[in-house]
């Protein structure tokens, strides 16, 4: 009874904390100064049509680097926790996938990979980018895992691709420090004409690297969770 009372008290306190947010804050009608600068100067300085991408990759590039490190640490933690096999040695007999799933996935997997690559290479022009494209690549890998229950992804290969793309991300950041204004500054390449695929400096390259890295990390997490014999 006392527990239930304390829980209710906590919930009521939290709701009371939220009250000023709803009652007092009136909807803003103009941007604050930082956002104003990003929105007006972003297209001219960086040449990116999608300003969310400009904020993620260049203006707040260091944040994104930190988030990718957090993702990497979480993947490492999952691998660390699942490293020791339990007592059970023999894998449970697995049901093989059905004919419809196998045929359908053979048709869909190349299209999904193509779509993922499209999303992360066009991140500076259309909605989308490295994170979304990486997840679409992961969903292609997931379809492959579902249709071929026996097949395994090469663990070394995914880890090597992920590490190499992480190193390239840092190298591009340092190139920006040397050749342009600061760490992860994307302007050391030509800005080009807005709306073209090869424009906006190094933003498409950085976002493609992020996409490959995120995709490989998530494939690694799924593969570790899927293994039956561990």
């Amino acid at each position: 009874m006392a527990k239930r009372f304390i829980t209710l008290l906590l919930i009521a306190l939290l709701a009371y904390m939220f009250l000023p947010f709803i009652v007092e804050v009136d909807e803003t009608s103009q941007l604050n100064r930082v956002a104003e600068k990003y929105v007006t100067a972003g297209p001219l300085e960086l040449g990116a049509a999608n300003l969310v991408t400009a904020v993620i990759v260049t203006y707040r590039g260091l944040d994104t680097l930190g988030e990718i490190v957090v993702l990497f640490i979480a993947a490492v933690g999952i691998g660390f926790l699942l490293r020791k096999p339990s007592k059970k040695k023999i894998a449970a007999p697995k049901r093989s996938s059905s004919e419809i799933l196998r045929t359908g996935s053979d048709f869909l997997i190349p299209l999904l990979i193509l779509f993922g690559v499209y999303i992360f290479t066009h991140g500076h022009l259309t909605p989308g980018g490295g994170f979304q494209g990486g997840v679409v690549l992961t969903s292609a890998a997931l379809l492959f895992m579902l249709s071929n229950t026996e097949a395994r992804f090469n663990k070394q290969l995914t880890e090597v691709i992920e590490s190499v793309s992480g190193i390239f991300y840092l190298i591009i950041g340092i190139l920006g420090l040397i050749l342009a204004g600061g760490f992860l500054d994307s302007r050391f390449l030509q800005l080009g004409e807005m709306g073209r695929l090869f424009s906006a400096g190094a933003i498409p390259i950085i976002y493609s690297i992020i996409g490959i890295k995120v995709g490989m990390e998530l494939i690694g997490i799924l593969e570790k969770l899927r293994k039956e014999e561990i």
Partner: peptide
Amino acid sequence: APDVAMTEAAIGSGLTTIV
């Protein structure tokens, strides 16, 4: 926010459920 919508649809409802 179409970028966030894409991410949420792919990750929040797809991959999180699978995990």
